[in-house]
Simulated scan of single mutants.
Amino acid sequence: MLLSMKKELKLRQNFLNDKILKTLYFGGGTPSILTVDEIHSLIDEVLRYFDFDENIEITIEANPDDLDKNYLKQLSHTPINRLSIGIQSFFDTDLKLMNRAHNASEAEYAVKCAQDFEFENISIDLIYGSPASDMTQWKKNLQKTLELGIPHISSYAFTVEPKTAVHQWIKTKKILPPEENVQNEQFYYMSELLRANGFLHYEISNFALEGYHSKHNSGYWAYLPYLGIGPSAHSYDGTLRRMWNVANNSLYIKHLSEDKLPSEQELLSEKDRYNEMIMIGLRTMWGVSLSRLKADFSREIWDYFDQEIQQKLASGILVVDNGFLKIPEAHWFMADGIASDLFLV
């Protein structure tokens, strides 16, 4: 797989016009199963075709059970300077329900051990609204996060996927389904608590202390071009073209062994680009630039948009602030629904 990824990188080295990378992200699946030598090898390969910005953010996603002392020690000697750890919860009742491989003590140990090896830029994932967790437990989860001094938090509502054990347990009434009003309450409690502790709520699911926002994800939200390497990886040229690789590992390797790119592509229609700009922009504290929207799209689309927002502006669900359309934070829990009301269908 490593050789195939290197070959893909060589074949696609000209996809990005800017040869100075500001971010590099090892994510998707469990990249922490890579040995440190393999990580070094991949970084060296990237440096064959690109240069690194002096303040580059290099992130690796990891599960707590992968981050033992030896691995973190070795990782601290690589250029990686940001960890994104899939904690989910500091309580075993939540972790068992989510079928996570780690337990609560491993979650806390992973953070503390990473800090011992001078990883300061740490992000963790937390899940709120789990049927196994009430408000008291959620408050303790957040308090533990603050006590550990974690500077970035990505937090998502518990969801039930079809054909999973949780779906079956709910169907047979072994557990109760997640309740939207409970998730709403936990979301806003988190937002208020983290704000009071110096966090900036810069995207619906993301909170950061000053200087610790995710540069990589912020690039997606700003519609910047990106190159993805590996099975299932996505790429975007910053304008019209989106590409994605096959998910099947064997097919991915086979294509590259024949010097073929293992990808498909689509050209985004004006409707697609408009819907994405609305969806992404309204999930962030920056909102949607009205001047850019007017410049980038047809008069017909602008007139549709302008008509659709009027009632929401009057009700306060949307506001215009210095030329940007935003959802006030009090309504962020409903952001996806608000944005979808503005979509072209």
Rank of each mutant, 00 (worst) to 15 (best):
A208T: 12
K171Y: 01
G211N: 03
A247V: 08
I204V: 15
K171N: 09
L200D: 12
E203S: 01
F187V: 09
P231R: 10
S232K: 11
Y212R: 12
G230Y: 08
K174D: 13
N248V: 02
N217Y: 03
L200I: 08
A165W: 00
I229T: 05
R241H: 06
H167D: 00
M243N: 05
P177Q: 05
R241P: 00
P225Q: 01
G230D: 03
K171C: 03
A222N: 10
Y212F: 15
L193Q: 04
Y223P: 00
N181Y: 14
G198H: 14
S218Y: 00
Q183L: 08
L193W: 01
R195C: 11
M190R: 00
E203M: 04
A247L: 05
P162S: 07
N245Q: 05
Y202D: 04
S214W: 11
A196N: 15
F207E: 09
Y223T: 01
S235P: 06
A196W: 12
A165I: 09
L194M: 06
H216M: 05
V246Y: 09
A233Y: 09
S232N: 01
V166C: 12
D237A: 00
E210N: 14
H167A: 10
F207Y: 15
F158W: 07
Y212I: 02
G228F: 09
F207D: 04
M243H: 06
A196D: 15
N184P: 04
S232T: 04
Y226V: 06
G198R: 08
H167G: 03
A165E: 13
R242W: 01
P178F: 07
Q183Y: 04
N217R: 03
G228A: 06
A165H: 07
N245R: 06
Y236E: 02
H216F: 01
H255F: 15
K215I: 00
E161V: 08
I229W: 13
P162C: 02
L256T: 08
S214V: 10
Q186T: 08
G228L: 10
L176I: 01
S232Q: 03
L227F: 07
H234G: 02
N249H: 14
S218V: 06
L200A: 10
E210S: 12
P178W: 08
Y252D: 14
R195N: 13
N217I: 01
T164V: 06
S232E: 02
I170R: 02
Y223C: 02
A165R: 12
S191Y: 04
Y212V: 11
A196K: 15
A247C: 11
E161A: 03
Y223H: 13
L200E: 13
Y236F: 15
L224D: 08
L193S: 03
I204G: 06
F199H: 00
G230I: 03
L209D: 08
E210T: 10
H234K: 04
A247S: 11
N249C: 15
W244K: 11
T159I: 13
Y188W: 06
V246T: 11
S205W: 05
